[in-house]
Design a protein around this nucleic acid. Structure first.
Lengths: 239, 239
DNA sequence: AAGTGGTCTAGACCACGGC
DNA sequence: CCGTGGTCTAGACCACTTC
């Protein structure tokens, strides 16, 4: 039986086969997955290869392995700590996401923000302020900062058309990797309160995000103010 | 060369050897780690075993592997999303942590909390309310709930002596795995404000934590109210 | 006892990186 | 080119779970 060094690795083919059966509903959470030895026979690979396929699936949270018992389909995971765009967030809740651009401008006196993006203190920055709406209710006020030099082609019209995330991904070829968030609470000032339709002094969840690309570059800084009656943050932390 | 099936697995011994060299400063971030083949020779194991040692270290973020180049010590990580006790938190900032027990009682009418701990609605719960102080300044108000049945031996005196976390770990043999947090903002009510030394209506960061043991059991429910001028939450989220 | 995952061997060839 | 990590073989024994 020949190997196929140039094609898809065998262990990935085995994974795909298992994932297909899960997706199609043939395998449900808790069901036993073929054992290492069975997979080795079925796919004509050695035990180590079948084993590797299962080990990676376990690391990815798709299956659970119990010594002496077997390998089982893992219960579907709630995704904590995932970097998801606003548009994706709302869609997953079955709500219509929309956002209103309040301002789009170039600033060059935001030293604090520039520093967070590892730019010169006087760097020109695009400042995009948006009101986020879910189910037609104001929900959050987000102010994004990006390098004006790097994203020179970005216009108010383009961000009004589509999600900022997808524009950066598709038009600028940026892949997002992770964000570092600083979260605290603050009280709404007069203008924020008016925009969000709440009383001045109401508590807000404030996030200061630095969003990094896969190249490790700090790409976007976002200051978010969330109505605490409409928004909670879910976090899973590990020991 | 005999194997040692009953002792520490070979791949773990190899890991320890590498980690020791990192801890002692013999290996610094960016330094090359012995290659798979070198490790195999040094520790008299097969290539697969040496490889497994490095693969696990990579998954844990201790080293980076680059095909064709080698294995390198990873830069020290900032630990985001780590489950850390209050005492540990303060110690890591070089501050003296202390906490004052405000009340220690048994309640049985907290249906919401009981549900979160997967207990009967009328279950008897230990309710422990503590004021957290850092550098002698009030900082947070935390209310913990635990099963009164499971932790029957727990007394006010014991939690006044030491960290709740370490009591549960050492005296009850519980290992903590992760927490699910719900975070939002709220305004301080009169009594909370007085305890925290702030004005009524000031914004607070509110967390509702369910802390799980390694056995997957919801063990503690914690309601936390943090002065937002003294506390921010750091989160790293991934794509 | 039978079957499972966990560890391990002693090799092999491939694809990639840096010189 | 040589050394690196990535994939893979065809077995082996151990520790554990389930029956």
């Amino acid at each position: 039986m020949p190997r196929s060094p140039n094609g898809t690795p065998a262990y990935k083919r085995i994974q795909s086969a298992i994932l297909k059966r899960i997706e199609r509903g043939h395998l449900k959470p808790g069901d036993v997955v073929d054992s290492e030895r069975e997979l080795a026979k079925i796919h004509h690979v050695s035990l180590m290869t079948a084993r590797h396929a299962l080990a990676v699936l376990e690391r990815e949270g798709m299956v659970e392995r119990r010594r002496g018992a077997g390998t089982f389909v893992a219960p579907p995971k709630i995704h904590f700590n995932k970097l998801v765009s606003f548009t994706e967030q709302m869609a997953s809740r079955g709500l219509v996401a929309c956002s209103k651009v309040l301002s789009f401008s170039i600033v060059n006196d935001e030293q604090e923000v520039a520093a967070r993006l590892a730019l010169a203190a006087s760097a020109r920055l695009i400042r995009l302020q948006r009101l986020r709406l879910g189910a037609d209710e104001p929900f959050a006020l987000e102010t994004c900062y990006l390098s004006a030099e790097e994203f020179a082609g970005l216009t108010r019209a383009s961000v009004e058309r589509g999600s900022l995330f997808s524009i950066l991904e598709h038009d600028y070829g940026i892949e997002f990797a992770h964000t570092d968030d600083e979260v605290d609470a603050t009280a709404a000032d007069t203008s924020t309160a008016r925009l969000l339709g709440i009383a001045r002094g109401e508590p807000l969840l404030r996030t200061r995000q630095v969003i990094y690309s896969t190249k490790g570059k700090a790409t976007i800084y976002v200051l978010g103010l969330y109505r605490s009656d409409r928004h909670t943050l879910l976090i899973r932390r590990f020991r």
